[in-house]
Design a protein around this nucleic acid. Structure first.
Length: 477
RNA sequence: CGGGGCGUAGCGCAGCUUGGCUAGCGCGCGUGGUUUGGGACCACGAGGUCGCGGGUUCAAAUCCCGCCGCCCCGACCA
């Protein structure tokens, strides 16, 4: 393994790519724009998955699986949807050595195939709400790809729900957005802003798109999750009606919501440093690594024995790895486990044993600290907890420091030229034209209209016209 | 799709300008030994369709033509 990662300050994008490759989260696949998620990266995804899955089930959802292939005719049923997705779809034209009667789209998202089935399953108000989630892979033919952040194929979860009323569907939409916020902040230790997307950034086929926006260390925004209120658009396209108590026929109301393997990229970009990954304990595949240090057989037996006992003293909820390889030096191991972002490292050698202690290093702090063996487990558990909180606070502080409230266009443009452009909180008149021009002129986009924001009389930062509210603008991934 | 870069051992590269003999270096890998508190060392060893196809030549990694692939930067997107 080569030494040294590029510095974030010198080349953030190269730092990111090299880190993902060298920490063995992922590797480039033979197909352009595709990646292999390697075991260590997949382990992070599995932890994301199992946590969210539990949260979805706690909110009444069940899992199902719908097919990868979607008949072309389904894709074209909802006008906006097809217009939005057609350009990025992979289409299968041949199967079994023969040209297909009807081309099959590889799902870019599953609204159409799911709503074609919901049509069969929903007849009465008694069938509602229908709350289904699926874990799946999807394909979107992107022009430009980046490991985890944007790949041609990616893994995600997509929730698709059907409701009797608009109110209920809207409640569901914001409820799931809140689930995402909770997950991002409590597990990923990534603070997010809940908001509504502008018309132009809205999901193709949605009435309204909600999102959570996170800030990466280079001051760019990353959309970390979305939740859509679909109104009756898909119900009408697929003719999904239900009979009310009164016997009337009504179209059902829909939502859909998703997060993807992009979250792994968000995790990397939110916390990691020039030495490698920094993983929040609640999502780290390995919590504690023990590196034994010894000379000769005698010490080896002694130190390894103690190290094993130490590893075994932790309960099943703490994942401890004893690195007893003898083909690499202790120093090499330190660097490797830092690269891989293991939250806590314990060094234990003869000198420690003589003093009845071990050396402990927290990944985010990097300082060595001697801890008596008898209290080691307790201290480690506390540090894991503290680190989880510390990462969130650090990220939050960074976001606050990198968010500017601005009112004139010139300072805004200047801000977007800064090495860390950050978020700008500014007025927007609401016109699509201003939005487009703003993007053209500054490379920034309107990330969202924050839910927390109060209506406020101000003026549009670009055209100066009256504005009813402030929005978040930023360069983004 | 436009611009740039790169394709030579598992990885990173040199060699190409000015064709030549057995294609080289570092890391990694294997074996043996000494080692282990911040990326250890010695010895021996394995490992190559020089991206692909064609051409020029006595001779091509090197020159010419064509193709392919990947990465990076811009226009679409979670």
């Amino acid at each position: 393994m080569a030494k040294g990662l590029p510095k974030r300050s010198e080349d953030y994008s190269r730092w990111y790519t090299e880190l993902v490759l060298r920490a063995e989260l992922a590797d480039y696949a033979p197909v352009k724009g595709c990646m292999v998620i390697r075991p260590y990266g997949y382990a992070i995804w599995e932890r994301i998955q199992s946590t969210l899955d539990r949260m979805f089930k706690q909110t009444g959802h069940v899992n199902a699986y719908f097919p990868l292939f979607i008949p072309e005719s389904f894709m074209t049923k909802e006008a906006e949807h097809v217009e939005g997705f057609a350009p990025q779809c992979a289409v299968v034209t041949h199967g079994g050595g023969a040209k297909l009667e009807e081309p099959l789209y590889v799902r870019p998202t599953s609204e159409t195939i799911i709503w074609s089935m919901y049509g069969k399953w929903i007849q009465s108000y008694r069938d509602l709400p229908l709350l289904i989630n699926q874990w799946a892979n999807i394909v979107r033919w992107e022009m430009r790809t980046r490991l985890f952040l944007r790949t041609t194929e990616f893994l995600w979860q997509e929730g698709h729900t059907a409701h009797a009323t608009e109110t209920e569907a809207l409640e569901e939409t914001v409820k799931m957005l809140e689930v995402y916020r909770t997950f991002a902040e409590e597990y990923m230790a990534v603070p997010v802003i809940k908001g509504v997307k502008s018309e132009s950034e809205k999901f193709a086929g949605a009435v309204r798109t909600y999102c959570i926006e996170a800030m990466m260390q280079d001051g760019k925004a990353l959309q970390a999750g979305t939740s859509h209120y679909l109104g009756q658009n898909f119900a009408k396209a697929f003719n999904v009606q239900y009979q009310t108590k009164e016997g009337k026929l009504e179209y059902v109301y829909a939502t859909s919501w998703g997060v993807s393997t992009r979250l792994v990229g968000a995790l990397v970009m939110a916390h990691s440093d020039d030495n490698g990954l920094v993983l929040p304990p609640r999502l780290a595949p390995i919590h504690v690594v023990i590196v034994p240090i010894f000379k000769g057989e005698e010490e080896r037996a002694l130190v390894l024995g103690k190290a094993r006992a130490l590893a075994d003293s932790f309960g099943p909820e703490t994942i401890v790895r004893l690195d007893d390889r003898d083909n690499v030096s202790a120093g090499w191991k330190f660097n490797e486990w830092e690269l891989k972002g293991v939250p806590v490292r314990i060094e234990i050698g003869p000198r420690d044993l003589a003093k009845g202690q071990a050396v402990m290093v927290r990944r985010d702090l990097g300082e060595k600290r001697a801890v008596p063996l008898e209290s080691l487990k307790e201290v480690v558990l506390r540090e894991l907890q503290d680190m989880q909180g510390a990462l969130l606070h650090k990220a939050l502080d960074f976001r606050q420091a990198s968010t500017k409230r601005l009112d004139d266009y010139e300072s805004f443009k200047k801000q977007m030229e800064e090495p860390i452009p950050g978020f700008v909180d500014a007025g927007w008149c609401g016109s699509a034209e201003c939005e487009a021009k703003l993007q053209e002129e500054t490379k920034a986009t309107i990330r969202c209209l924050p839910l927390a924001g109060q209506p406020e009389k101000c003026s549009c930062i670009r055209c100066g016209n009256p504005s009813e509210r402030r929005v978040i603008m930023a360069k983004s991934y």
